[in-house]
Simulated assay, not measured.
Amino acid sequence: MDRKDFLKMSGGAALGMALASCGAGGKSTGNRGTIKNLGIQLYSLRDDLPKDPKGVLKKLASFGYKEIESYEGANGMFWGMSNTDFKKYMDSLGLTIVSSHCDHKKDFERKAAEAGAIGMKYLICPWLGKQRRLDDYKKAAEDFNKAGEICQKNGIRFAYHNHDYSFRVQDTQYPQDILMKNTDPALVDFEMDMYWVVTAGQDPIEWMKKYKWRFKLCHIKDRKKDTPFKEGEPNQSCIVGKGSIDYKPILAQAKNLGMQRYILEQEAYEKAPLDCVKEGAAYLNNLVF
């Protein structure tokens, strides 16, 4: 399934609370920092990338990105190249492919072997979808553990990338709690998409505190100012630094709570996609927190 088909959101009544807690809950400990190796999810350039993979990657390097998170397009995670050829080209640009989103239920042994062979760190499930029953999330957690075992054999790790549905109460529980509690920390990590956490009315800092060292990667994208949360709303993301999510307090605490990889993702566009991610890189590479 194309990710564009299922990136549909539902609203949350706690918009003001979420944004306020993100801004107030993360006071710096005094250790000011910056993002050392900014990454980008290639889905951000989903229209441009298939036309000229090498050209797009070259531009991303020039914008100041250092790490790449791929996804499975029509030509696979390596965009028509072999895994080794892709790595060689990345090396020539000063880029590192650290992770990729992929379908962990299809030919996963091969994907894990190819990823491990070139020194990638993660393969990631990008989407689960809202399940009908809470037990279905437990079954998903079992599947994640099995995928984690396959990754472990190949010297990499497995992770799950959230959307808003797992951070919304369902039958008195948060599905995210079920996924966290039923996955083996030795096998499964989590990639926190902070935009979706905020969209669900939740505080990223509090969840990182609750499950310290489980969220190892994050997606950074901003949310348009003064946009009400409505069920089924279109994507409200915008260029990072121009929206309503205050990333300084969040990032000030993230590292001490286990965060290791910081990855920009651009889902909606206010101008040409390459221009959006160029501005995002300039903002995040100069952000001191």
Rank of each mutant, 00 (worst) to 15 (best):
A254G: 08
R3A: 11
N162Y: 06
N162H: 07
L19A: 10
E206S: 14
T84R: 15
E233M: 15
I150W: 09
Y247I: 06
K121A: 05
Q41I: 01
L7R: 13
K216S: 12
K66W: 01
D107N: 15
C102D: 10
G25D: 14
A254Y: 08
G243N: 00
Y247H: 02
L264I: 15
P273W: 00
N37F: 14
L217D: 06
G76E: 03
D91I: 11
L134V: 09
N235Y: 02
R223Y: 11
A141E: 03
S99L: 00
S62G: 03
I239P: 02
M81R: 08
S44M: 00
K58G: 04
I118E: 03
D52M: 02
E279C: 03
F289W: 14
K87N: 08
D143Q: 13
T172F: 07
V98M: 12
R223P: 03
A24I: 14
L60C: 11
G119Q: 09
G116W: 06
F215W: 10
R3D: 05
S44K: 01
K88F: 03
M81I: 03
D189F: 02
S166W: 01
G241N: 04
W196A: 00
D203G: 03
E72L: 08
S82R: 07
L15W: 11
S237M: 06
Y165M: 11
K88H: 13
D246F: 09
S10M: 12
P234K: 11
N286Y: 09
L93Y: 05
P185H: 11
P126E: 06
V240I: 15
P249N: 09
K138P: 01
K51A: 15
A112F: 02
Y269W: 13
G33S: 14
A254F: 07
E72R: 06
T84G: 09
G33E: 09
K58I: 00
D189Q: 02
M180Y: 13
M9F: 15
A14Y: 12
I35P: 00
G25K: 06
Y43C: 04
K210S: 08
K4F: 13
E109C: 01
A252L: 03
L179N: 01
K216L: 04
I97S: 03
G55S: 04
G201E: 08
A113P: 00
R32L: 15
M1G: 15
A61S: 12
E233K: 10
S100R: 02
A117E: 08
K139S: 13
T96F: 13
I68L: 04
K27S: 15
H101G: 10
T227F: 11
F78K: 08
K146L: 12
E233S: 14
I124W: 06
Y71F: 15
A112P: 04
K255H: 14
L60A: 01
V188F: 01
K242G: 10
